[in-house]
Write a protein that binds this DNA or RNA. Sequence first.
DNA 1: GCCAACGTTGGC
DNA 2: GCCAACGTTGGC
Length: 150
Amino acid sequence: MATWLFKTEPSTYSIDDLARDGVTHWHGVRNYQARNFMMSMEPGDQGLFYHSSAEPPAIVGLVEIIHKAKPDPSQFEPSSDYYDPKATKEKPRWFCPDIKFVAKFKEPLGLSDLRDVAALADMELLKRGSRLSVQPVSPKEFSTIMKLAR
DNA sequence: GCCAACGTTGGC
DNA sequence: GCCAACGTTGGC
């Protein structure tokens, strides 16, 4: 089982939205590195759910991958913000997995608090200038965060 | 609102 | 294939 982190702006799609929906197609990611990580996800993998541009920016919950990545339908939809004119049904560019809600933490794990945790010193999320919206999380980092989570 | 960091685009 | 210009991300 691999472990990951999904970033989202809560004003766009929050942990509460996912709790309501139960399952969602993680569509709209338009970055090749993030896409490649999503294409390597397997059902049963777990993901941390992170709110960016939030107060505070924080890890707020846990999700699970329930279906491996398939073509992101929004790339074919001209009216979508995520439309990609260079993508075709025969050769899709963008793929995304289905994820399901597992838990919302009682207390968000704020970015500034995570920076104080020595075991997380090398975590991608905490790196200066880190913008990747889908990231791998190491087993050690994941277990450290799950111990902090309530 | 600022701005550093980073990815993408496109001219050459 | 280089790289300057530009747009976006996202913490602060």
